[in-house]
């Protein structure tokens, strides 16, 4: 624990595991800045897949914004969280504030969650397994308050089967939710 006197004290790294069988387990690591009382309420989620050069088939093999939207739309409103998922690849650059400004004109999010693919292991044209990194920002002040990284092992097993891809998106959101809850944000 770093010394107080700064605006936030870093709570430290944590990890949660979600999933049934060993090959389905998703592992999420996180780091949270302690912001007392802040809970997710109205969240704009930007999904960015193009963090490396991808062929069209490689791009299509990753969990798509619409698949993640379906999972978030099913799971977060029952928790009292209003969400909107947008395709972050439509916004250029690394500056998340551009996404916040453009979409918040009508959505007025309290928090912005940016999801982007991290290290991916490829087997030819499709992804074998990869990580999704998440950055959570307080949109009022524009500062980052939480980071997470989720490993999706054996992801290749779900490619080509819509129902399995849907289940994989659900597992990802479940893992993310469990970690955010553990860190006091849900």
């Amino acid at each position: 624990m770093k010394s107080l006197g700064r605006r936030h004290a870093v709570m430290g790294l944590g990890m949660t595991i979600a999933g049934c069988t060993p090959e389905q387990k998703v592992v999420t690591q996180s780091n949270a800045a302690a912001v007392s009382g802040q809970k997710l309420s109205r969240v704009l989620i930007g999904v960015r897949l193009r963090t490396t050069r991808l062929t069209p088939s490689q791009y299509d093999s990753l969990l798509q914004p619409y698949e993640l939207r379906q999972a978030f739309d099913a799971k977060w409103p029952p928790l009292g969280i209003t969400v909107e998922v947008v395709d972050g690849d439509k916004f250029s650059g690394d500056n998340p504030m551009a996404l916040i400004a453009a979409t918040n004109m009508r959505f007025h999010a309290n928090q912005v969650l940016l999801l982007h693919t991290s290290h991916a292991r490829w087997r030819g044209a499709y992804v074998q397994d990869y990580d999704i990194d998440a950055d959570l920002y307080d949109s009022t002040v524009g500062s980052r308050i939480w980071r997470g990284s989720t490993s999706l092992p054996d992801f290749w097993r779900v490619i080509g089967t819509p129902s399995k891809r849907s289940e994989a998106a659900d597992r990802y959101v479940d893992g993310l939710t469990a970690t955010l809850r553990k860190d006091g944000l849900i």
Partner: peptide, 13 residues
């Protein structure tokens, strides 16, 4: 930097 770094400014202070 720290793993899953949140505030580099603060970490470097």
């Amino acid at each position: 930097s720290t793993k899953l770094e949140i505030d580099r400014n603060g970490d470097q202070k």
